[in-house]
């Protein structure tokens, strides 16, 4: 999620806690104010090579890598 570095003090990879993607976003918001709403304003999540749209309640196991991507559109 290196496009969100403006919120993370330059870090491209950060750790966060949560049982769902939404909880992870809440945890990120607590540590990096503004990041949560930026992520909710427009992102999908890439997990295990699959892209999920609006992943708020998607369950994630511990040590899962989540890639926050722009919501990919198409033509």
């Amino acid at each position: 999620m290196s496009q969100h570095r403006a919120f993370t003090g330059g870090e491209a990879v950060v750790r966060a806690n949560g049982a769902t993607v939404g909880q992870v976003i809440n945890d990120l918001e607590a540590n990096y104010p503004g990041l949560g709403s930026a992520l909710r304003a427009g992102s999908s999540a890439g997990i295990g090579g699959e892209i999920h749209a609006e992943p708020e309640y998607l369950k994630v196991a511990s040590d899962t890598e989540i890639y926050f991507l722009a919501p990919v559109v198409g033509g």
Partner: peptide, 18 residues
């Protein structure tokens, strides 16, 4: 978009991937 709030701008996104 996707950055901390600022002034109106001609740029809609600024992206750095590396």
């Amino acid at each position: 978009r996707f950055v901390p709030p600022g002034d109106p701008s001609n740029l809609a996104t600024v992206t750095n991937l590396d």
